[in-house]
Computed example of a mutant assay.
Amino acid sequence: MKLTTRDLTMIPLFTALMFVGAKVSIPFSAVPITFQLFFSVFAGLLLGARNGLISQLLYIGMGLIGIPVFTYGGGFQYIFNPTFGYLIGFAGCALIVGTLAERTKVVNFTKLLGFATLGLVFTYAFGNVYFYMIKNIYVGTPMALSAIFKMMIPYMIKDYVLLIIAAYVSALLIPRLKKAGIYKVKEMA
């Protein structure tokens, strides 16, 4: 895996944006309102699958070794936080969105919003199941999976609005980045 100078610049930039997205948070219920899904989608759309995933894994790794980059700090014990599944979901989201964006021949708002929506669905499905497992198995506070999905509806609405913005901005940026030779699309076999 060879990383270019651009990769070595953009990957940490999107890692830093994830940190900003976590720290610009609004306390709300059991889960704070953050802007992390917004930045994980941008990472996938603008960096592609590999580099988007690396930026997310770097963010998660920094948090797990104790750097307080997560909304509530950091450290290995964070894996027992019910919201940690969403962090894993962000990495999967960047991978899914990036893979789909790289493989599309024609970039437009509708396609990018569709890709972003799939990333949102994955993130919340994974995160909600993880939340359920931690609450029911580790914490020992029974909570129905359906109740968790219902609790997440306001977050999903907020994130969907942000994804509309991410898809719109990316639809404007990607053609310009391609023209400048900065955005490389994988050739389909």
Rank of each mutant, 00 (worst) to 15 (best):
L45T: 10
G92N: 05
L64A: 10
Q56C: 15
Q36R: 10
F38H: 10
I60S: 04
G85P: 11
G63W: 10
L46K: 03
G66N: 06
G61V: 05
A43T: 03
G89N: 08
A94F: 04
L45V: 07
Y59C: 10
V97D: 02
G98T: 00
L87T: 13
V69N: 08
Y72P: 00
F109V: 06
I54V: 13
I67L: 15
Q56N: 13
R103V: 02
F80V: 13
R50H: 03
G63A: 11
P82H: 11
E102C: 01
G92R: 02
L45I: 04
F76M: 15
T99Y: 14
I79Y: 12
V97N: 02
L64V: 11
F84T: 12
E102F: 01
I65M: 14
F42E: 05
F42C: 12
R50E: 12
L47Y: 07
Y78S: 15
K105E: 15
L57G: 05
V107L: 08
V69K: 04
F84P: 12
T99S: 13
F42Q: 08
C93R: 00
F90W: 13
Q56E: 14
G44D: 02
Y78A: 15
A49W: 07
Y59I: 09
I60W: 06
P82D: 12
V107A: 03
Q36D: 11
S40A: 15
G74I: 09
S40V: 11
V107Y: 03
L58E: 07
T83Y: 09
I60T: 05
V97I: 08
I60A: 09
T104W: 01
V107K: 04
Y78I: 15
G75Y: 11
L100N: 01
L100P: 03
L58D: 04
G75A: 12
V106M: 05
I60N: 06
L95N: 03
F80M: 15
A43Q: 03
G48D: 01
Q77Y: 14
T71F: 09
L46R: 02
G98N: 00
G52R: 00
G73F: 07
V41L: 07
G66R: 03
Y72G: 13
N81W: 11
G61L: 06
I79Q: 10
A91P: 05
T83R: 07
G61A: 09
A43D: 04
L87F: 14
S40N: 10
F39C: 06
F70V: 12
I96K: 06
I65A: 05
K111I: 04
Q56S: 14
I65H: 03
G61W: 06
S55W: 02
T104E: 13
Y72F: 13
G66C: 05
G98F: 00
L47R: 02
P82W: 09
Q56W: 00
F80H: 09
G48N: 01
Y78F: 15
L95H: 02
V106W: 02
F39Q: 08
P68M: 07
A101V: 09
V107C: 07
G61Y: 06
G52E: 00
S55Q: 05
S40C: 13
N51R: 15
I65V: 15
T110H: 09
G98V: 00
P68I: 06
G85D: 10
G52T: 00
G61C: 07
Q36I: 14
G44Q: 01
T110D: 08
